[in-house]
Simulated assay, not measured.
Amino acid sequence: MLPPSTTGQILNPDLPVVSIAIDLEREQGAPHTHPRAQLLYSIEGVMRVITSLGTWLVPSTQAVWIPSMIEHQVIATEAIAIRSVYVDPAWSGGLPSDCCVIAVSPLLRELILRAVKIGNSYPSVGPERRLMEVIVDELRQMKRAPLHLPMSRHPKIRKVMDALVERPADPAKIEAWAKRVGTSARSLSRLFVKETGMSFGAWRRRLRLMEAIERLGQGESVTQVAFELGYQSGSAFAAMFRTELGVSPKCYSLQDSG
């Protein structure tokens, strides 16, 4: 595992935002925390971010927000180019207190890239400092995207989750899963909602969506991904995609991007 960067450990209110650029190729970072909150953004490739409460799959159109001292791990299943910014605790007012995936606007993307070019030794007054404050203002207006997959430590729920993560296309209904873990379908349904805030069906759709985005980003065709994830037609798969993200799966397809 790659050791964590020390950039997030910098504490200095005169540096509202500090940044880092890291390129990874099929690697994973060690679980870690830092006192600065972080906007973890990959300008190329899809990264997976894991915490004890859930998993986030983050394509290059989005970023994941990680509050101060939340343990997390980054996994690159393909080549990714991370351009990340960290916010000093003194500037955290109005920023989310929980992890979330956000849509990265063209303005925020350019601000992040500019911050990386400026570096972390800018003066406390002047245009560089003002740009960093604009980044904080933009982060306070973040819009969340639905790419969080909540997990559970409950043994029966976790057994179902782990099996589906291994085989997202498994078509078994909740009655079959309940039998496998020794409970009733009604009890398992209630546990899913209690533990994740989502029904079993909604959780499985979210898992398949995240798996689809990762596979599309690796160059698989929309049709191939649809059938391998258990959808009977490409149109049914596209409908799920639009319902969850408001866009066609072609927006995430490497084959259609070039």
Rank of each mutant, 00 (worst) to 15 (best):
P3Q: 13
T7S: 12
V18F: 03
S19L: 11
A21Y: 13
E27R: 14
L40W: 01
V46N: 13
R48V: 11
V58G: 12
A63R: 06
M69I: 09
M69E: 15
I75W: 08
I75R: 12
A81P: 06
Y86I: 01
Y86Q: 01
D88I: 00
W91R: 00
G94W: 11
L95G: 15
L107Y: 12
L108M: 02
A115N: 14
P123H: 01
P123D: 01
E128F: 01
R129H: 00
L131K: 02
L139H: 02
K143E: 14
H154V: 04
H154C: 04
P155K: 05
K156W: 04
M161F: 09
L164W: 04
E166Y: 10
A172I: 04
E175N: 14
A176T: 06
S184E: 09
A185N: 09
R190P: 03
G197N: 08
G201L: 03
R205Q: 14
L207E: 01
L209F: 10
E211P: 05
Q218V: 05
E220G: 12
V222G: 06
T223Q: 10
Q224L: 07
V225A: 04
F227G: 07
Y231C: 11
S233A: 08
G234R: 08
G234T: 07
S235E: 15
A236D: 13
M240T: 07
E244C: 10
G246N: 06
V247M: 15
S248Q: 11
D256Q: 15
